[in-house]
Design a protein around this nucleic acid. Structure first.
Length: 152
DNA sequence: GCCAACGTTGGC
DNA sequence: GCCAACGTTGGC
């Protein structure tokens, strides 16, 4: 039996929002161009729960929940010359970027804003509140996830 | 617009 | 391998 883990994934709502995911139902979390974030995706299991975080907006915060339903998918945007995520250095025989597929679970009635998160958790408990943390995908510890699940 | 905190690139 | 320059993220 594989372990269920919790993660947090950020997206700017202008680029892709919880409402868009709710409409789509399922989406490919593509366009990740940071090795650390990519490596976190590689550690994901099917069934893992993901907190959806709206970044670079007012207010930033957790807006919903999704679930990982597919793993190790080659990110198609790296080969798409029209995509802003096109990577000329990536080869078809040896793709550099991959991603996971997620499905919508729920949208929070109220956003769990970053100021609230800062009140609830210390920097170590929730990496997202750590000043200057630019990683768009982060692991969430189980104890933290339990509290978050009650709040969203 | 500013700035902190990285990551990436490329010369050497 | 080192390091400077530059780019990106994202809160404020």
């Amino acid at each position: 039996m594989t372990e269920i883990n919790y993660w947090l994934m950020k997206s700017e709502p202008d680029a892709y929002s919880i409402d868009t995911l709710k409409t789509d139902g399922v989406t490919l979390w593509d366009g990740i161009r940071n090795y650390q974030a990519r490596n976190f995706m590689r550690k994901m299991n099917k069934g893992d729960k993901v907190f959806f975080y709206h970044s670079n907006c007012k207010p930033p915060g957790i807006v919903g929940l999704m679930e990982v339903i597919d793993l190790n998918i080659v990110d198609p945007t790296q080969f798409d010359k029209d995509s802003k995520y096109f990577d000329p250095k990536s080869q078809h025989e040896n793709p550099r970027w991959d991603c996971v597929k997620v499905k919508y679970i729920s949208k929070s009635n109220k956003i769990l804003s970053l100021p609230q998160l800062k009140i609830l958790f210390s920097d170590n408990e929730l990496l997202v509140v750590k000043k200057g943390n630019r990683l768009s995908i982060l692991p969430v510890r189980n104890e933290v996830a339990k509290i978050l699940l009650e709040k969203i």
